[in-house]
């Protein structure tokens, strides 16, 4: 087992209902459990599937089973599947040391379409995220996935990016069996997406 930079190591995966947040957290969580870590994942479920904000809280430890909820202001990494949701999470869980990985493709809410809310100016949004993060990686996961012909693999690209960031004790080898289990029929595509994510974050 590799050492953790912090115990517990706190990851928040932020997105919008329907994006596949839960699958993403399970992929990472399963790989970590296989490596022998104690992992807790708190998921938002139920009604929030329908277009609301969705987050997963992931705790990685060698010591105890941690709470499924992260204390406010103590996230180590925020993996943002959507930019404004990344900022929402920074507002509650950010701290001067937090690192963020952001898929910049916005998803507008019905409130934005309805006119009661406004989607922020994109540059301002990224500036806010950068300003609140010790380090920010912008990973055009949706765009890359579309190039690969399958928007859904954006999530695997993000997993690749998270692993490639070197912040969590996982590597390609530890992800392979998990991807194989999850995507038996589309393994090649997902491995490609994973590698693309790793490459993107190290550009």
């Amino acid at each position: 087992m590799k050492t953790l930079t912090k115990d517990p190591f706190n990851i928040i995966i932020a997105g919008v209902g329907g994006q596949g947040n839960v699958v993403l957290s399970q992929l990472i969580g399963n790989a970590l459990v296989n490596e022998g870590y104690l992992v807790t994942i708190g998921e938002t479920y139920g009604a929030s599937q329908r277009g609301g904000p969705v987050m997963s809280h992931m705790r990685i430890s060698k010591e105890i089973v941690y709470s499924p909820l992260i204390e406010e202001g103590t996230a180590d990494i925020i993996l943002g599947m959507e930019p404004s949701e990344t900022l929402r999470m920074l507002g509650r869980f950010g701290n001067p040391a937090v690192k963020t990985i952001v898929n910049p493709r916005p998803i507008y809410s019905v409130d934005v379409a309805g006119g009661e809310a406004e989607y922020p100016d994109f540059d301002k949004l990224l500036e806010a995220i950068r300003g609140l993060s010790a380090k920010t990686w912008i990973v055009n996961a949706t765009e890359e996935a579309e190039k690969m012909g399958s928007p859904i693999v954006a999530n695997t690209i993000l997993v690749g990016a998270l692993v490639g960031s070197g912040t969590i004790p996982l590597d390609r080898k530890s992800m392979e069996p998990v991807l194989e289990d999850r995507f038996p029929k589309a393994l090649a595509l997902n491995l490609k997406a994973f590698d693309r994510g790793m490459a993107l974050i190290n550009q």
């Binding site: 209902g17 329908r50 277009g51 404004s84 900022l87 809410s109 409130d111 989607y119 922020p120 949004l125």
Partner: peptide, 9 residues
Amino acid sequence: LVPKRSLAL
């Protein structure tokens, strides 16, 4: 900056 995100059908 963060927009409200109501549940929707």
